[in-house]
Amino acid sequence: MFRQVTRSAALVILLAMTAACASTGGPPPPPPQTVRSGADTAPADLQLVCANAVAIELNTNPDKTLPISSVKAQGESYQVTVAADQRQANCFVTADGVVQSIVPL
């Protein structure tokens, strides 16, 4: 009788250990950054890459060419709207800083 109880207890412990090993290991780790912007605007350097490209494309004064809005586009690219003097253009730039296209508005 005692041997049966001991064997059952050992089995329960073994199952518990197995279950623990088979679990997912608890909640996922926290993200590397603990704060973030609530908006998906393009990083500042990418916005300026677009401003520079638009100034060249539209032949406008770079000191009067300013990104005014941006949004995440397909994949890791961004659409940046740039105001240049009295004109505007949409610029599509990858996360690596490569300008894909410029579309005057």
Binding site: R36, D45, L48
Partner: peptide, 29 residues
Amino acid sequence: VPAAFQRQIVDFRTTERPGTIIIDGDRHY
């Protein structure tokens, strides 16, 4: 403040001259 808002050197691809200040009001940098 949280680490992201503490002073640090980062990569920054720009043709702007060294000494220029860029303010990203949306991301608070």
